[in-house]
Design a protein around this nucleic acid. Sequence first.
DNA 1: AGGCGATATGTTCCGTCAGACATATCGACT
DNA 2: AGTCGATATGTCTGACGGAACATATCGCCT
Lengths: 126, 126
Amino acid sequence: MTQDPSPARVRLRLVFSPDFALGPGKADLLEGIAETGSIAAAGRRMGMSYKRAWSLVESLNAAFAAPLVARSRGGARGGGAALTEMGERVLAHYRSAQLKAATAAKEDVESLSRLVRIAPQDDQAD
Amino acid sequence: MTQDPSPARVRLRLVFSPDFALGPGKADLLEGIAETGSIAAAGRRMGMSYKRAWSLVESLNAAFAAPLVARSRGGARGGGAALTEMGERVLAHYRSAQLKAATAAKEDVESLSRLVRIAPQDDQAD
DNA sequence: AGGCGATATGTTCCGTCAGACATATCGACT
DNA sequence: AGTCGATATGTCTGACGGAACATATCGCCT
């Protein structure tokens, strides 16, 4: 009883300035880069064009005190990208914030989900 | 010391389905309707076209088990709109979720804000 | 009856953003 | 030297969304 089919996903967006915000998109991209070691691969994995992935990395690197993603060109396997220490820290903090926020809001979100007409959701797009 | 100029605003977006989500925009609109008693006035107040405000109300009313906004046409002052009991509940739950989430994520968000290059923000648009 | 002010709804137009293509460049390795 | 695979960057075009504009409708009040 009291089934919880899908209490709605909670998306957290941190708005630092009118020109820069950190949300699920950039966070997932950072995670993808950490795991694949490549901007292109991370982008492909989440169905994003290389161009878009690259521009997101640009804005991330420009927004923080130090670059989050270290890129290298050429070489044996063409090149690659990896998170810097700063990148790891930013990602970790975002994930932490996300988890804490979702946990804290859980009660209210579940209440809201019960008021929604239906709410069928399958994949976790974006 | 340790001034907290602007630890970034936390925006909460509740995604119920691929077709419907509840975020700051709709929440503020609901609040505006509750305060002004009019869709048009609420829209104007937040620099939004009447058409857009109206369509947001449409989607809100369609998404929940019962309408959130009761509208009336004609009459002494032309008509108006007000939140239903369901509307009040939804708004209250969203505000509560927002507050709890922001509080829970405060630590991490402040840490992130300290890592950002600058972060000047003035008004609270959108 | 006519006016007023707000809801209701359609149409048109335009700026923006994202995707698709197209290259250029780099550097270790064979 | 040439290949390979990834980063780096520019151009163009189509789709989407929002703004602007235009009406229609409703119902209390004067």
